[in-house]
Structures are given as structure tokens and as C-alpha cells.
Design a binder for these strands. Structure first.
Lengths: 197, 197
DNA sequence: TGTACATCAGTGAACGCGCGTTCACTGATGTAC
DNA sequence: TGTACATCAGTGAACGCGCGTTCACTGATGTAC
């Protein structure tokens, strides 16, 4: 009786099913947690049959790996924005913690055990390495020679990653999360600055 | 024909089924990961029917919470041992990382998302708090007044927890794990020592 | 010291559930002529 | 510009699986008398 008659409610062919499935997986991740995410639930949310995903992804892990890689790229972008500020280590670290707090489901997928065969997905490894490289660059300092060992970057990564994990996993009351992270990051000296003792 | 005839292979009553189930859950955790751990598989390993566990635990989460609490107590004990050494922050931190590397499945249960309703288990919260308190005490330093805010302890916790997580989740090659952790912990000054700049 | 009986600790069948994946299929699209 | 046909992107039924949990039960244990 109205124009809905001419509008197919469920077009047989989607415009971009892979993206829609990734987006659905992310919303599941944020709402229901890593245990619930999967092919059937994602397809259901998109409004597509349970097996449609197999036209675009080899299997469940393949979809999740692609979601995780997307997450690492977004994390790197958020950190990149902080890298040009006055106190870059502070800004970049806070960007990391904020990312975890805001996209906790995605963060858990990126770093957790849901993905078993991480090594099988080069795109994923590359995106994760980019995050570490950025941290390493900021932690060592732009003015200095890049050093052989990467303990400065690892210390920075460890700190921000640990704070993020403790916050989102509920070990620390979430109300304090951001303020505490900020305070700690401002007071954290670069390893080079440490006193001789 | 031999003495086996007189030895009941499957005694009807166990000596200590709760402990046996906890132990089984831990071995599953370490061998197969958090997704596999559960009442059925634990019962199977102990050699008991799938429902026997319900005589001792309210449900699956109840068993896992009790395993996690056990883990926190062991972690605190391992750290306690390091607290009396020359450089206590270093020793305690390394004990934390070593615990994670050696009992990774347990560590994941203690800190991860497997336990959804952590707040429901006071024993678990108490055991986890003890770990943080110890870290806070060591990070602030025995000679100083305990301070109002706990950012020094949180910084220490964040660092060791983040390093542990990155190692066991495979973001950093495991071969480097312990050496890197050691180097970072030795070079990490207490926040109080930081220069004015 | 022996016995009746309450209680405790296990059994095994059954339930409903949701999952990943396979299969043969059909509807939609694009391209060669 | 039209049409035949290959290819692509979906469908829906079905599979086997393992899980947590319930239920009515039985075997083992301990205690009051």
C-alpha cells in the first residue's frame, strides 16, 4: 500500500557482507563478550542465513582474525594522533588505555586467547607489530638513536597494557581507571632518565 | 588372579573430590585452555560421573572461582618469598611474571573473563586484594608512610601484569620473556625516585 | 558390640541448547557474442 | 540491444558435538540406642 511494497526488505545480495559481519562481530564482542561471538550469532544480527558467511570467510577464526586486525589498525591510528603532542609517551599511553576502555570486547579479542592460531594471519601480525613499533619509537625518544634492544618499548607496552587489562577485567574499580592511568603515565619517566642508583 | 582383585579400581567414595576436581580443572586450564575447562571434562579426568561435582560445588562457576582463589593465594605466597630480598620490587615482580609463565592457564582464569561474576565470591576478592596489597607495600617502600593514593602500587601491578599478559598471549616471543622482564624490572625506579623534570 | 536408620556422596539417563560446518540447492549478476 | 550461460552470493535442512544442569536412584557411612 505504501512504497515498502516496492522496497525489498531483505535483498538477496548484500552490499558488503564482510563488513557487515565484522561490524556485527564487534557489537557482539562489546555487548556479550568473547564467548558469544561466532558465525551464527553474527549472521543472525546481520539478518542473513547462518552459512552465508562461508562465501567470504574460510571459517569462524578467519572472520575473527580479520576483526582483530581491523582493531589493531584502529588502535595504531588512535595512538598516532597522540604521538605529536608535547608529552608523547603520556598521550600515546593514554590513547591505548582509552581504546581498551571504550572497545573492551575488541581489545580482548585482539590480545586474548580467542584467536588460537594468531601466527596464521600475517595481516594480523603486521597490524600488531605496528602498534609496538609506535610505542617503541615514542618510548625511546625521537632524538635518540634507535637502540638494539627494545626494553624501553616493552616497558611502556607492558605498563599500558597491564593497566588496560586490570581495568577492563574488573580487578580495579572502573571509576578510577582513567584518572589513575593518567596520573601514572605523567609520573612515569622514560627509562633513560633514571638515576644511577 | 592377583591382588587387583581385592583392590577396588573405582572406589565409590573419593577421599577428597573437591581437591581432585580443582586439580583436574587446573590441568585442563594448562593443557587445553580456558574454553575447555568445565564440569564435565574435570569429572571425566577425575574418573567420576559428570554430576558428582554438584555434591560439592553449586555450579561450574563456583568450582572455577574456588580454583581462581587458590591461584591468587599461591601467587601471593610466591611474591611474599621475594619481598625480603635486596631489591624487593624486582624480586616480587619477577615472581609475578614467573607465576604467569609457569601457570598460564591458571593465570588466565584468575584475571580473565571466564569468571563473569567475580564479585559474588568474597574469598576470591580477598585473595586478589592480598596480591595488590603486597605489591603496593613493596612499591611504596617499607620505610615510608603508606600513602593515600595507590598509584605507585598500581604502576607496579600494571607493569608486571602487562608484561605477563603479553608474554603468555603470544604477543612477544616467549624465548625473550623472562630476560626482558628481568631487565625491565631492574631498570624500573620506584616512582618516588623520579627526577623533577 | 550390634543394629536400625538418617544422611551423605556418588550414578546414569535425560533435557534442551547453541555451536561450526557440510551439502545440494536457487536466486541474482555480469559478460561474451 | 538482446540473449545464453557461467559464475557468484545467498538459502535452509541436516550432521554431530559437547556442554550445564535436573532428576530419581543407589551405594556407603556414621551415629543413636
Amino acid at each position: 500500500m505504501n512504497d515498502l511494497t516496492n522496497t525489498p526488505r531483505r535483498p538477496y545480495h548484500r552490499r558488503n557482507l564482510p563488513d557487515a559481519l565484522r561490524a556485527a562481530a564487534r557489537s557482539i564482542l562489546d555487548e556479550a563478550g568473547p564467548d558469544v561471538v561466532g558465525l551464527r550469532e553474527a549472521s543472525r544480527r546481520v539478518g542473513v542465513s547462518a552459512t552465508a558467511a562461508y562465501r567470504h570467510f574460510a571459517n569462524k577464526e578467519d572472520l575473527l582474525a580479520s576483526v582483530a586486525a581491523e582493531g589493531f589498525r584502529e588502535l595504531a591510528a588512535a595512538m598516532e594522533a597522540g604521538a605529536t603532542e608535547n608529552d608523547p609517551l603520556h598521550a600515546v599511553g593514554l590513547a591505548y588505555v582509552d581504546f581498551a576502555l571504550q572497545k573492551r570486547g575488541l581489545f580482548r579479542l585482539m590480545f586474548g586467547t580467542i584467536l588460537v592460531e594468531r601466527a596464521k594471519y600475517p595481516e594480523l601480525n603486521a597490524a600488531a607489530s605496528a602498534v609496538f613499533d609506535l610505542l617503541q619509537r615514542v618510548a625511546v625518544g625521537a632524538d635518540e638513536q634507535p637502540r638494539e634492544d627494545n626494553s624501553a618499548g616493552m616497558a611502556a607496552w607492558g605498563l599500558v597494557h597491564g593497566l588496560s587489562s586490570l581495568f577492563i577485567d574488573g580487578l580495579v574499580p572502573e571509576a578510577h581507571a582513567r584518572g589513575l592511568a593518567k596520573e601514572i603515565l605523567v609520573h612515569t619517566p622514560r627509562p633513560e632518565y633514571q638515576p644511577a642508583a
